[in-house]
Design a protein around this nucleic acid. Structure first.
Lengths: 264, 264
DNA sequence: CGACCCCTTGAATTAGATCAAATAAAGTGG
DNA sequence: CCACTTTATTTGATCTAATTCAAGGGGTCG
């Protein structure tokens, strides 16, 4: 199901969009200009293959809008999702050695792509850009390690609880709102059950059972298939078994991040 | 079991050792000098806690000798190993945001530590160093993603097979030799079964059973508890279920890397 | 030689995968 | 807007693999 992307070509209406890309904050005007010249803005419909496994080395770029799946097709036919990338995340691999994954659009996505060689050259020539890339890669490393901890959870329920927590903390702007009394999180899961199963290394059936278990235990209340209100955050944290999360801190942090977007 | 490290102090006998650190290859003499001034060479005995979870932000550095465990203590008392670091790998997190893991010596280790703030400043001021750090972090990111794929394997046997393959490819110099006829790999596992269990998100018992299963099936032949001769590499790859590995390519690659170390 | 540590083996239990089917949404075309 | 097709989710029953609990080797080191 590989479809042709909608190309905008490397031109200046993009400049307006690129303004909002945090990777570029703090770059020198000259670097920025060069980067914009190299940029290629594209959109893909949900389900489209952006890069197939095997030719993942031609492009790098960043997500502007929507959710991008990084996945690996295993020899038994299973597909494991390695990461979900949301706006401001980078994809691809500069200075690649191996690293071969497929990229698919989990929702309709808008991407800003750069031809890899050109981008690498730009990175090597512009320390300010290299610094920005380093920060971005460090973010990804944190996310990947966080994911290792998540997958290490032996129970599906623990992995699911962890997923909800990570989702809330990492991407509150995209997927979290606060309900009326401003004290309960309402989370929207950006992918369907099948994806979630591939992401949490389990099956749709097990996902479904865990979700229903959470509902029965009064941890969450579904608004619809994709969005849940968290009734008992502390309980969810206990199921996740991850000390890193603290209900009071988490809520504070999320409120702060949500507030930050309303201001500017 | 936190023990005091053997300090060498920030002085020049280290310079000799730092020569061999690949992170530093290609650095300008000035950068290198500054870095050496900041370096603090330490050794820790096997089992020692290098950094406890909670104060993981003071140092960064790299492994000179031995194996370092990066681990997370979970609230149920389990400890999950996130990564194994071997010579040339960096630990710690420059420009840290969160990222909080414990570091323990899996074997006797020799580390080259840098006070984090100072190192970060150095990185910001010296693009050549920043470039080197970027390459290192990219390596770690690859390793972490590889690990995500490994942990996604539902069967313990698959995870174990994958571990052996990753170990061989990633650190052939430290853990692989070729036997007499130069056609079979002999792998030495750098950690005991307990660690391996924590690494593969399972139990010692399950590890043991999988190992014995491999022996019965003629995939491997144990030389002792820690080292195995791979009798059927192709079979092992099939169990791992990871298309990324190809027996012919893998052997070639490993031979090449082993040859590379004998030359210079 | 005995104490200790690590690894292996065995039996019972449990969580999740698998197979099969029902129900619920979401589109589609009249 | 409704009947009809398609896709997503839930539920149930069975089977399998792994954890758990318990005990038995096999080294090594004092």
């Amino acid at each position: 199901m590989k479809r042709e992307p909608t190309k905008s070509g490397p031109m200046s209406p993009q400049a307006a969009i690129l303004q909002h890309v945090s990777l570029l904050d703090g770059l020198k005007p000259e670097t920025r200009q060069r980067l914009e010249a190299l940029a290629d803005l594209r959109t893909y419909p949900k389900g489209a293959t952006v890069v197939a496994q095997g030719d993942g080395l031609a492009f790098v770029g960043l997500v502007i809008q929507g959710v991008l799946r990084v996945e690996k097709l295993l020899s038994d036919g299973r597909q494991q999702i390695i990461a979900l990338l949301t706006p401001t995340d980078m994809f691809g691999r500069v200075h690649a050695a191996r690293s071969d994954y497929a990229l698919e659009a989990a929702t309709d996505v808008r991407l800003c792509c750069f031809e890899r060689r050109g981008f690498e050259k730009l990175v090597s020539d512009h320390p300010d850009l290299e610094h920005a890339v380093l920060l971005s890669v460090l973010e990804e490393l944190d996310a990947a390690r966080e994911w290792v901890v998540l997958l290490a959870g032996t129970r599906v329920a623990a992995r699911l609880a962890n997923f909800l927590l990570i989702l809330s903390r990492r991407w509150p702007k995209q997927h979290v709102t606060l309900n009326g009394d401003r004290n309960r999180l309402v989370i929207t899961i950006p992918v369907d059950r099948t994806d979630l199963a591939h992401y949490l290394a389990t099956t749709v059936e097990s996902i479904s059972r865990s979700v229903q278990e959470f509902v029965r235990d009064g941890l969450i209340q579904p608004h619809n298939h994709a969005t849940f209100e968290i009734l008992d955050l502390q309980g969810l944290i206990e199921v996740a078994g991850n000390d890193e999360f603290n209900s009071v801190e988490l809520i504070k942090e999320i409120k702060r991040m949500l507030a930050a977007q309303e201001m500017p």
